[in-house]
């Protein structure tokens, strides 16, 4: 079950994994995610399905090593197995021919935006894409995004690749051109999504973001992923993960997502110690 067929490093800390999951591959639509548990003592975490191949019966996941669980997944090899993979979860992205759309991916969020951009392109939209990263090492999926975009911007915080600056700089340029943008799809760190939402709010451009809050079961049972959208309580796992960015209470969500920082640190310390013990 859930065997890793192919492992492709995308940067020093970001990896793409093609995982055997035939039932999920058959059903998956752009916007869906899975919950995975790497080991029998592991945590359940959500990961977006970047691509699926129903004939091979596989799905592709992209993971960035940040906490203990993502670190564990990052070090898994071809032939290794996930303990559990369940999905496809979440509401799929509604895809239509809207005209002109902008797809913005920040950091590993590009892995979430890529399947949307691909589907929007296939539906006949003119797709302008922006990939943002800290530096040239962490720019991912540039070739893939380029293949599904009519125009592609790359921005890095340090200017080591593309435009020096944040994705909002490139988005500002596109908006200033006076293009008739129907929608903006943005996924990345919460402060980035909040900045994009603030940028498009004035012009009223429909802006959709995919949220990745703390989640456990992914089926609407724990309520950990709750978020206030338009003043109403929503569960990102079953009502989302995509929402109207102009309606999201980002401050609340940013505060909630910080809740487990100390425990994350403790878990990482334990992992490092375990590695040292094994090495010694």
């Amino acid at each position: 079950m859930y065997v890793i067929h192919r492992r492709t490093p995308l940067s020093s800390a970001i990896t793409a994994l093609e995982v055997e999951a035939p039932l999920i591959a058959r059903k998956r639509k752009p916007g869906n995610f899975v919950i995975v548990r790497p080991t029998a003592t592991g945590e359940r975490i959500p990961l977006t399905i970047v691509e699926s191949d129903s004939e091979r019966g596989t799905i592709t996941l992209i993971v960035q090593a940040i906490g203990k669980t993502t670190q564990l997944i990052h070090t898994m090899k071809e032939g290794d197995e996930f303990e559990d993979v369940v999905g496809p979860l979440g509401e799929p992205t509604p895809i239509e021919n809207y005209g002109k759309v902008v797809c913005v991916g920040g950091g590993v969020g590009t892995a979430v935006v890529y399947p949307m951009a691909k589907a929007l392109k296939a539906a006949g939209n003119k797709v302008i894409s922006i990939i943002g990263a800290q530096n040239s090492d962490t720019v991912i999926l540039e070739k893939e995004m380029s293949a599904v975009s009519d125009e592609l911007f790359v921005t890095t915080d340090d200017g080591s690749r593309g435009i020096k600056g944040f994705v909002t700089q490139a988005l500002g340029e596109i908006m200033e051109r006076g293009d008739d943008i129907h929608s903006v799809y943005a996924t990345g760190p919460l402060p980035m999504m909040r900045a994009v939402a603030n940028q498009t709010r004035g012009s009223g451009i429909r802006t959709v973001v995919s949220l990745n809050p703390i989640m456990m079961d992914g089926t609407g049972m724990c309520g950990a992923c709750r978020v206030t959208v338009g003043g109403k309580l929503k569960f990102a796992c079953v009502d989302g993960p995509e929402f109207d960015a102009h309606e999201i209470n980002f401050e609340e969500l940013i505060a909630r997502n910080k809740n487990y920082m100390n425990q994350e640190r403790e878990a990482m310390e334990t992992l490092k110690q375990e590695h040292q013990c094994q090495a010694g």
């Binding site: 049972m221 724990c222 206030t228 505060a255 910080k258």
Partner: peptide
């Protein structure tokens, strides 16, 4: 109710 340290019983018990 959406402060970080507010849990549903389901979340607490499942964890």
């Amino acid at each position: 109710e959406n402060l970080g340290d507010v849990y549903s019983a389901s979340e607490l018990l499942t964890r």
